[in-house]
Amino acid sequence: MSAQTQSGDFDIYATFQQFLQDEEISPPLAAISALAEAIVRSNAGTMFELVQALNDGAEELKRRSPNPISLNAGCELFIAFVTLFPHESDNFAELKKELEQQGRKYAAEALTFRDKIAELALGFIKDDSVILTHSHSRVVLKALLHAHKTKRISVYVTESRPRGLGLKTYETLTAAGIPCTVVLDSAVAYVMDRVDFVLVGSEAVVESGGLINYVGSNQMAIIAKAANKPFYALAESYKFHRLFPLSQYDLPTHNPNILSFPTPIGRSAGTDDAPSTSTPDIITKQPARLGTSSSSTERAMNQEQIAKNPGVDYTRPDLISLVFSDVGILTPEGVSQYLVGMFAG
């Protein structure tokens, strides 16, 4: 790490985490706020140094975060903005201050984006709709709660293993009085015929017009397509990301460990990864209710097995009907044009 940029004890990742504490702040916004903070702390004296410092900060965030995709979108947006910002300030200190304020202003302003999206989505939610959603997304929740004020809706939410965030969605929706049922991730195809449309949030929306979201979104989109149901993605504009994945394995979150096979037992003498070669220690749980069936021991994956699974997946643009964003309702083609216009315009 370059010493001149990280002045003193400023830890950008800690700052980022601190911003994330707020329930309403999503990673891209926290990243923008953290970078704005980094501008103040940095002792850069020229534009070049400043951009360098920001790039280093973004790099640091990316390196230390387990899932860098969405925060990266925020960093990219902010750095592109800083580079293109018209200089009119009299001295550099003033410019830095100005940039920092812009960053903060945007982060504050961006909190209203979800309301905008909820309002746009409202037109697409009919009375008596049955909606399928995946995992936990703040913008989807906002849209559903907003629709609930004026329309009768019921929601199926997937359990979303392994993190089980679907249960969080379930709790929030049930507390708000929306009829909600949790379905297994593997029951998406089973439930699809009952559903009017699918509504998911996003980690990032990429240049192809595709979507990066919690793992399972892709299969949901494929099933929705097969059943001819609309698949809508909700994404705030700070999640637009200049990335062009051609397959799942092009995502920055992919690493060789994901989906890797263990070395077969017997031939692996002398290798050090003993746990994977030995019989996996299956966690056995006693079912909560007794007497449901004989020999009812539930099997679950262990941590190590989970680690071999992806956290997010990529959904191709042809599977997505529309993307709702605070800048309007876009087709997937529209998203790619938008991104080009934004960063190349």
Partner: peptide, 11 residues
């Protein structure tokens, strides 16, 4: 502003 910058993508 940043939101103006974002709006540059608008066709």
């Amino acid at each position: 502003t940043i939101s103006k910058f974002v709006l540059q993508g608008q066709p």
